[in-house]
Amino acid sequence: MKIAVTDQPLNPWKELANHEALLKDQAGKWGGLATFIGTMRDYNEGETIDALWLEHYPGMTENYLQRLAHTAHQRWEIVDTLILHRVGQIYPADTIVIIGVWSAHRAPAFEACRYLIEELKHRAPFWKQETCSQGCRWVTTNTPPYSAP
């Protein structure tokens, strides 16, 4: 299980491959990897967005993500999880978040992945400030928590 918040650019394909390489002792134990990769759009609410500033609460954010991962492991049969999230200045097409869930079967992999991204967006202490032609504005739209199918 790996959780990290970073101000460095994220390459999702390298991060997923690097993490999977660390799981070599468990090779053959998983039958699938479900991923969610969040990427910055260049528009929001009718405006062109030039950049995004991502702020977090150091310590609390990492603790919260760790707890989400533990809950996912208790709730579904999964082999491992990876959660990486950017902070600082980012630009359109940059990766914001990477979630990977390795599991023996696709159903727990997909569901745990959806749980992690929905709960992260709903409650993990990150805040976005957009830069557009009219200046800077904080994003205020929070999204609902995970709900089981």
Partner: peptide, 10 residues
């Protein structure tokens, strides 16, 4: 203690 607005990550 910390106070903050609704979160908007991901």
């Amino acid at each position: 203690v910390a106070f903050f607005p609704p979160v908007t990550g991901g």
